[in-house]
Amino acid sequence: MSNLITKYFPFFTDREVPHTVSARPDTGLYSAKLGIWLFLASEVMLFGGLFSAYIFLRIGSEPGYWPAGLLNVPVGTMNTAILIVSSITVVMAWAALKMRQLGKYRLYMLVTILCGLIFLTVKLSYEWPAKFNHFGVFIKKEAASKYEDFLGNKHLQEAGQNPRWEISGHLLDAPKGSHYAHQAEHNAEHFGHETGRHDAVTPAEDDYVIQLDAVNANPSDKDNDRPHFWPVPMSTKLAVISAADVESASVFAPRHSTYFATYFLITGLHGLHVLGGILVFLYLWLPFPGGTKLYKTNPEHLANRVEIAGLFWHFVDLVWIFVFPIFYLL
């Protein structure tokens, strides 16, 4: 029995694991490098499948039902730059270990960890919450003419663009008993004063009242036909929408649309990968037996560990380099 354990689970014994530093003669690689590339191959299939799903869902969506320009491009750009910088610092950390400069390794690894933490903090404390605070109402096609002042479909038709079926902004009032009644009350307290006219409208019990995004406040403005790098401030204009004219209504959460379902799925999965990378980097940075303590006994082994973690980190950053343009720009 003990022979079997020793044979198939060598890491349960005191025996040294072979080829952690030297290359295996059959593959020409040390074992962990072969392992990480097999793992990354499976990751390519995972994210490749999700990206393919996104592309086909987008191509197959009905005109006007695929939102655009709803994400904060400057924040996304900043996060992209942070990840690119972190890829540079992780390579610097690895090179420092190769040159046996522990102090520099610690510094570069710390910067990498901080970059990852900033990325996650921005995503979880700013970008996602901002979405959950935004509300969109898809209007039934047969009722669209009633809301032409907010949809601007005549203008869009003349401009040769897809029609618009959604009215979005801050929800200030929701139909009685609605799932969003509490949020509307909260928003009315925080944003209602911006409009000044909230008290002026007298919605019926089954009406939505929305403080409009610029695109719905001036839908025929040609300036709204192009994407904007800097977010356009919200208008003070209000729209009163009858629940009977609404096809679907939701905050900008996965239930809102296929677009946001894929956005939260892919950015959430990517965020989990960033978190995983940060945890591994912390382990390698702190004085654990497999972390910087290993430097005293076997610095090359630690350098190899950092290389493996760095390869994973580069893959995660590469995924973001694709996520950013398809969700934020196109």
């Binding site: 491009v73 690119i84 790098f229």
Partner: peptide, 26 residues
Amino acid sequence: FHLFFILVSIVFSAGMGIWAFKTGAS
């Protein structure tokens, strides 16, 4: 892999520049 990553980043950065000019975003 780092060199490949930098190469891809260059391509996407240039692509973003072209996008910004072509669409008039900024």
